[in-house]
């Protein structure tokens, strides 16, 4: 019943390869037409390079990448260090938010009373734009590094919390009945049954929160922060290096993609025995 014939496996593998080749080809085609449209759209301007052309942006990309590891602080720092600084802030703020929001979400998802008591607070704070926390954070914490992390924390917290609660609510109630009939300890019930069962909701929350956090850090760093992708964008803009914006967008986008893909792998982390 479980032994698939070897031939079947081969065919499946071949089909998968063909499919991957097709999507890769489509991607190349799409990228090529995108660059072509970009070229046509920017070729007409005689504005001294205000609108970045693909060629100029490509050259700038090579420049930025070739000096990626330059480390000559305080004023000359390669893009790798900017990226690392942003990632560090996101990991700290997002990680702390996850540490608070997941346990709290498990609690609120299982306890109607506590949930109803806290829900108005969550609903009021949730729609607040993360950047609105920035002046408040700066006034309270008096430290730009801590403020940037605080903003990321606030941006992630509600998303993870709401999705965790939702994930817990969607857990098959029979799993909890099972845990009860087995007289499972609280730790086993929460960690071995509730959390894995609610994981789809939790992971959705983490994914959304991480992409939001990544979105917000760039904006936040344009205002505070001595290093980071936002600082890079801001500095390059103020030096009127518009081509660098394209490089920054590329780096930010690719990093966002990698972050999202890696957090999606959390599905695999459900604890076994």
């Amino acid at each position: 019943m479980t032994t698939t014939p070897r031939a079947l496996q081969h065919r499946a593998r071949r089909e998968r390869t063909v499919f991957q080749l097709k999507s890769a080809g489509g991607m190349v085609l799409f990228a090529a037409s995108f660059i072509a449209i970009w070229h046509v759209a920017t070729a007409g301007y005689e504005d001294g390079g205000l609108a970045p052309t693909p060629l100029a942006s490509g050259q700038r990309l090579i420049e930025v990448l070739s000096s990626a590891f330059v480390h000559n602080p305080p004023n000359e720092v390669g893009i790798v260090f900017h990226l690392a600084a942003s990632l560090q802030r996101v990991v700290l703020g997002f990680g702390m938010a996850a540490l608070v929001a997941i346990p709290l979400g498990l609690l609120l998802g299982t306890s109607r009373v506590i949930h109803d008591a806290l829900d108005p607070v969550i609903q009021v704070l949730r729609p607040v734009s993360p950047l609105a926390w920035l002046p408040l954070g700066l006034a309270l914490l008096r430290d730009s590094q801590a403020t940037a992390i605080f903003v990321i924390f606030m941006a992630s917290l509600w998303i993870i919390l709401v999705n965790t609660i939702d994930g817990v609510r969607r857990v098959n109630p029979l799993y909890l009945d099972l845990a009860r009939t087995l007289e499972a300890t609280t730790a086993n019930r929460v960690l071995r049954v509730l959390l894995p069962a609610a994981l789809p909701g939790v992971v959705t929350g983490l994914r959304t929160a991480l992409s939001t956090a990544w979105l917000v850090i760039v904006a936040a760093e344009m205002i505070v922060g001595d290093r980071g992708m936002g600082t890079f964008v801001w500095t390059e803009w103020n030096a009127m290096n518009i081509n660098s914006m394209v490089v920054a967008i590329l780096v930010i986008g690719v990093t966002g993609l990698v972050l999202d893909r890696s957090i999606a792998q959390l599905h695999r982390l459900i604890p076994a025995n």
């Binding site: 000559n72 602080p73 305080p74 004023n75 000359e76 002046p135 700066l138 006034a139 008096r142 430290d143 730009s144 205002i223 505070v224 001595d226 801001w234 500095t235 103020n238």
Partner: peptide
């Protein structure tokens, strides 16, 4: 050497009084 010895930071002028106040 302004590049080496001082941390020069381009900021939005409107943000700088606050930044000075909080020690940024």
């Amino acid at each position: 050497d302004p590049e080496e010895d001082v941390d020069l930071r381009i900021m939005r002028p409107a943000d700088m009084v606050t930044a000075l106040a909080v020690g940024e």
